[in-house]
């Protein structure tokens, strides 16, 4: 998985819709669809991620409005559904889908991608030791394995309530530190809830194909980190498999998806 490039320097800042028109905000991330800013909402002490889908000038304005509204609404509804069913995702604090924005709960923490990258770096150091390149459970790595189990459970919970993420990568999983981390000694920085973010492509479905593709995309993201991450992902799948009733069928389907590489075979 390629990392998206930083926002293009020569691009003009977008004019934000009301009420943000006169607030100078800096873009945090820019995907193909949405710009994300950090600001406050409702009270000056409530940080939010402002997600804005700017109009696409290539699109007919009527079609553009219709799509932007439908997609933001679908995303917001998925998030609300997740929160209602107790799945950890950013809450929706406000928004105006007609004008292309949502104010989402700010999530502190590190992405699983960052955690994995750090682990890979540490692994490099360990590799010089007598343990060689073995990827068995090492001292101090139990919490990493535990993190994998929580990722597996989080994805399983999401699927179980009938939501597929649609773009599940290691940057879509965030480890949120627990509410009182200050008193914790170091070495527990991987504790905390797994919060899944970025629901821009999510759908409400119980289809095993969509579920399997979610897992496949996540697997590819793990593999892109480091070949040594493979056993870690196996643990994600193991726990996923025992976390809800339909999981076994999804794992079976995952094997098919792997074989054809996400894409169905088709006529020329």
């Amino acid at each position: 998985m390629a990392t998206p490039p930083p926002p293009h320097a020569s691009q003009p800042d977008h004019i934000l819709p009301p009420p943000f028109t006169h607030t100078p905000l800096t873009v945090l991330t820019q995907g193909a669809e949405a710009l994300v800013y950090r600001t406050t909402f409702l009270t000056p002490s409530t940080p939010v991620a402002l997600k804005y889908r700017p109009p696409k000038p290539y699109r007919h304005p009527v079609l553009d409005k219709r799509l932007t509204k439908a997609r933001l609404l679908a995303e917001a509804r998925v998030l609300v559904k997740c929160r209602k069913e107790g799945v950890k995702v950013p809450g929706v604090l406000g928004g105006d889908v007609e004008n292309g924005w949502l104010a989402l709960e700010w999530v502190e923490g590190r992405t699983v991608r960052v955690v994995l990258d750090e682990w890979v770096e540490r692994g490099g150091e360990n590799g010089e030791g007598e343990n060689g390149e073995g990827v068995g459970v090492k001292e101090g790595e139990e919490e990493l394995w535990d993190l994998m189990r929580r990722v597996g459970r989080a994805v399983a919970r999401l699927h179980d309530i009938g939501v597929c993420h649609g773009d599940l990568t290691t940057t879509a999983d965030t480890v949120s530190p627990q509410s009182s981390p200050a008193s914790q000694p170091t070495g527990h920085e991987l504790d905390g809830d797994i919060i899944i973010i970025d629901f821009g492509l999510a759908t409400q479905t119980v289809g095993e194909e969509e579920r399997a593709v979610d897992l496949y995309v996540l697997e590819r993201a793990f593999a892109a980190t480091h070949p040594a991450a493979e056993p870690l992902f196996r643990e994600v799948l193991r726990v996923y498999g025992e976390s809800f009733k339909g999981a076994k069928v999804v794992l079976k389907r995952l094997e098919d998806v792997r074989l054809r590489g996400r894409k169905r075979s088709m006529l020329g």
């Binding site: 390629a2 990392t3 998206p4 490039p5 293009h8 995907g31 193909a32 669809e33 696409k56 290539y58 699109r59 007919h60 079609l63 799509l67």
Partner: peptide, 22 residues
């Protein structure tokens, strides 16, 4: 045309963002 071409441009843009091409 407006509908199907918008779909094509959209998926192309997403791929461009993904691989970092302009």
């Amino acid at each position: 045309q407006e509908t199907v071409f918008a779909m094509l441009v959209e998926i192309t843009e997403r791929a461009m963002a993904h691989v970092g091409s302009t």
